[in-house]
Design a protein around this nucleic acid. Structure first.
Lengths: 211, 211, 211, 211
DNA sequence: CATGAATGAGATTTCATTCAT
DNA sequence: AATGAATGAAATCTCATTCAT
């Protein structure tokens, strides 16, 4: 889809393409998109410069591919956490834990997402849109079942994503280590009280939620 | 401070320098740091290319200056909201409102902050550190007075900043319009329940907060 | 050695690199290092500007390479004159003749050496050091065999190099023609009496030479 | 003569001009002509950039002035050594000693001369021509009186200048210290035997000197 | 006289991309 | 498929010089 160039047919070709894509991921993560040159990528990949253009049309092209790969990965990972908890809040907790574990094991990819906004705003928005869509649907369902309280479900999604983004940036990304448990607990406490309807029992006197 | 070049001595020089800094702010906001060239800036400022180097050492140099200017602005603005509410939560509300109004009137600056991470990670972190410091101190005070609940005050700060960041991105920055009231209300409800100790009365059995 | 850029792999690359190095030699000789621009060099070489940077890191880089090439050439040439004369003085004569012939056929290179001092003092000194080392060793040997007189062998070497430098500058380089025979004879007479122990027999009463 | 700009009329102007000329001398000596910018000079002089052009037409202009100042100085210094020795050789010795002392106290000026060749070949040659003229005349006189032997007086002058140049470069300029006595003695021994007719008594069978 | 702001031509360098082999 | 040489547009930065005050 992304690459207009012909997909490799031989096994050797497939390997070359993959080596380049993986090298791009590492270098983008290390130096950032704009400071990365094609020859940085091919040097890392151990191929000749020209080989890049056998498989990709441009630097932008490979960037988008890497970004989409990460979007897929993040969805798979968090989705895997679904259905494992007793209630919505527990699932949130597992989802966040899975997300942080992902950042931890793929710090480069995290950085790639953060800069995608400036490389290709369009791609960046659809990255978010893809995540938000499913997330919002699940929260709405939980609202219906009375587990979750929110005046504006999409706003709630962005609140949650924002929390994950910055806690992840501050502790996982900046320190290069796993999130400390007390930080995680503090964050989850905040989230639980913020969204859990039953946990607090306190919706008395509030404006009613628009469906 | 930032610029090693001599500060302008005459009024004319002062004006030129400012015209360039303001032009840089606009262009960085529009095109992003990496896609902006010095000659883009001077064209916008209406000066010759060389004039840029009379006042700044590099593109990076102006960028940091602009970033620091915004850091100052954001602190002034949010600080102005302090002491105007009856309690901590009300002050949070006013602080967030002030922040969103700021993004609204300076969308370029918002974008500049978001990309600072890739331009100069060091400057980006100190930008955050400067904001976090005061914020965290105020929250700790509110925890002492029993208004606010948090297991880990710094984590709470990053939760709140994350919410502001993404809600601001999604509604103020992406749409170019003020935050819709229902989004704002939903966000504030989430925050209020998340951090307000008294509103919920439910701190029973929790780990005690480290001072 | 000098260039950090990868050496050319194909024959075509080898030729391009050499064309550029040779063009640089000519232009440096004509206009001087500082007045030469990279595009002067590539224009002379008949390549695109960017091609220069495929093979060299900077103007300084080629310069040093050209200088080292000349150092090699000068050593080879003068060394070829060795062992052809009956005695040390005759060898000096042949050495000087060879040196002047070299200047004559490579006036550009001569100019490059003279300006190396200001381009790269370090490289300039090692150029001299390389020449002095062998020269001094040969003179010491001739002192042991009683052919040559000198209180301080290294000083003698610099005297001889100084003579060659300035006579070469005045007659070969400035006039663009071979050294006139009478000038050469006069110089050699001066040198012979200056250093030949047997020719004069007059070391009587002098401080003894430190071995 | 050199400066086409009006000579300063006030005392203040005279001082400004001199401060700039002296600053130029230092900076040219330190960084070399081509790496020196006008603003380097005025910064060192403690004046504004524009002030330079009140007194000089160009960088080249001030360079030539500095060079000529040194030419004057060197002639004065060596001439002062004349008439103080019993014979020509003794005068040579004093002349060389004076020259080396001069380099020692003005290392910058020495460097300026050496690079003049590449800044302004014309000025460089006349610098040499000015020195050679008087030098050669004195040697011819000494030849007539039978003190000195040379087949080609001008060649002898260049031999002597070459020796002074390189010995000065190697010991005075490179080391930044006075010439060691043994080096000086060795050099003078070489010169004495090389040119002194009486010291060796050996002009027998030589071609006669052209007057 | 002195100043310093302004200029713009020109130099160096990078790099995405094309292409012949 | 793979290579690496070649390209030239574009970006950054410097600096001699002019000029208004």
């Amino acid at each position: 889809m992304t690459a207009k160039r012909a997909a490799p047919v031989t096994e050797r070709g497939r390997q070359s393409r993959q080596r380049i894509a993986e090298a791009a991921e590492r270098i983008f993560g290390e130096k950032g998109y704009f400071r990365t040159s094609i020859s940085d990528i091919t040097r890392e990949a151990g191929t000749a410069l020209g080989t890049f253009y056998v498989y990709f049309d441009s630097k932008h092209d490979v960037f988008v591919e890497v970004l989409q790969g990460f979007a897929r990965l993040i969805r798979q990972t968090t989705r895997a956490a679904l259905g494992t908890g007793h209630d919505r809040i527990e699932e949130e907790e597992r989802g966040f834990a899975a997300f942080f574990a992902l950042i931890d094991s793929h710090p480069y990819l995290y950085r790639i997402v953060r800069q995608a906004e400036f490389v290709d705003p369009e791609a960046f928005r659809s990255y978010y849109a893809g995540i938000v869509r499913g997330y919002e649907a699940r929260l709405r369902a939980a609202m219906v079942s009375g587990e979750v309280r929110a005046l504006h479900p999409e706003a709630l999604v962005y609140c949650l994503l924002g929390i994950g983004d910055l806690i992840g940036m501050r502790w996982a990304y900046w320190t290069g280590k796993p999130i400390p448990p007390d930080v995680f607990d503090s964050m989850m406490q905040f989230i639980r009280f913020g969204m859990d309807r039953r946990g607090t029992g306190s919706t008395n006197g509030e404006k009613e939620i628009p469906t």
